[in-house]
């Protein structure tokens, strides 16, 4: 109504009064209020979310209290928290948790150091920075299964190109995939090869956003490069870097694909992560209920860790 009035006022005056006809307005049912239109608009997204996320999650919670197996034709019994107790008291689960923790710390640590280092070097490079950035981002665009498959070939102790190169330079043969510590290290290397660019690109965004005048002021004060880095660059980039680290840590925590392809969890079970162990329980052993409890516990752990992390992040940003 307000709009119609204002348009009518701005129309040319005529002797017989305004001959302006307002554009036709779509007829609307009296019941279709703005609130309902809003609800209908978000309904597809909500249905999608409920159908593909919330319902499966709640369904998994329900199953986790039972003895259900997806492939066995057996009556379901309710064991309530029995599966949770089994998972939490299992030595195997704790071993996998330690393996996963070592992997997360090593991989994310390495990726942060290298990614930030490359980003810092790129930020100082004016010519060809765009092209270099695109080139460095390429690994991130590949499928992890493809990455795993070719790294497995490259790291093969007998026929792999890595060992051929090492032998050529006199280092000798390294058993990348059949020694427990080296196999885990190999996974860290493969994961870092693919995901360091993720840290790099976020760090680069932070570095290029640091205002030049801060450096100029530091230059006037004859500040050293280290001082500028420690007191200008790092504090300004750190919050953004923390977000990147959080994403990478969550992603590394649920690592499955590269383990599946490169080591298959071996030798023995030395590179079995929690997700890989969960997969074996769910799809090979067909212990759906135990796997559901396992999965719910992993979600809880990630959620709690993320909450602490976000609080820390908020505090850092507030500073």
């Amino acid at each position: 109504m307000a709009q119609t009035t204002s348009v009518a006022t701005s129309a040319e005056p005529s002797d017989e009064g305004p001959d302006f006809e307002p554009p036709p307005v779509a007829r609307r049912s009296g019941r279709l209020t703005d609130r309902w239109i809003a609800r209908l608009s978000v309904a597809p997204a909500m249905l999608f979310l409920v159908g593909l996320f919330l319902f499966p999650l709640l369904w998994a919670v329900v199953l986790s209290f039972s003895t259900y197996s997806a492939t066995r034709n057996q009556p379901i019994e309710w064991v309530w928290f029995g599966n949770y107790v089994d998972v939490l008291t299992s030595d195997q689960v704790w071993e996998r948790a330690i393996t996963t923790l070592i992997f997360v710390v090593a991989a994310v640590g390495l990726q942060t150091l290298v990614g930030f280092g490359i980003a810092w070097l790129l930020s100082r490079q004016q010519r060809g920075r765009g092209a270099l950035t695109v080139l460095l981002l390429l690994p991130m665009m590949l499928s992890p299964v493809v990455v795993g498959a070719f790294w497995k070939l490259m790291l093969d102790s007998q026929f792999g190109v890595v060992n051929r190169f090492l032998e050529a330079v006199g280092v000798g043969q390294v058993l990348w995939l059949t020694q427990p510590r080296l196999a885990l290290f190999s996974l860290v290397v493969v994961d870092s090869w693919q995901w360091t660019p993720f840290i790099m690109v976020i760090a680069l965004a932070g570095l290029t956003a640091v205002p030049d005048y801060l450096f100029e002021a530091a230059e006037i004060d004859r500040a050293s490069e280290w001082f500028k880095f420690r007191h200008i660059t790092l504090p300004l980039v750190w919050p953004l870097l923390l977000i990147a680290i959080m994403f990478r840590a969550i992603d590394a925590f649920r690592l499955f694909d590269i383990v599946y392809v490169v080591t298959g969890g071996g030798p023995g079970s030395s590179t079995e992560t929690l997700s890989y162990h969960l997969y074996k329980i769910a799809f090979q052993n067909s212990d759906t209920a135990v796997a559901s409890a396992y999965g719910i516990l992993m979600v809880i752990v990630v959620t709690i860790a993320t909450q602490f992390y976000v609080k820390y992040l908020t505090r850092v940003q507030a500073k």
């Binding site: 427990p180 969890g265 071996g266 030798p267 023995g268 079970s269």
Partner: peptide, 11 residues
């Protein structure tokens, strides 16, 4: 898993 650890020479 255990046999693989043994045949990898780690156990």
């Amino acid at each position: 898993s255990e046999a693989n650890a043994m045949l990898s020479g780690t156990q």
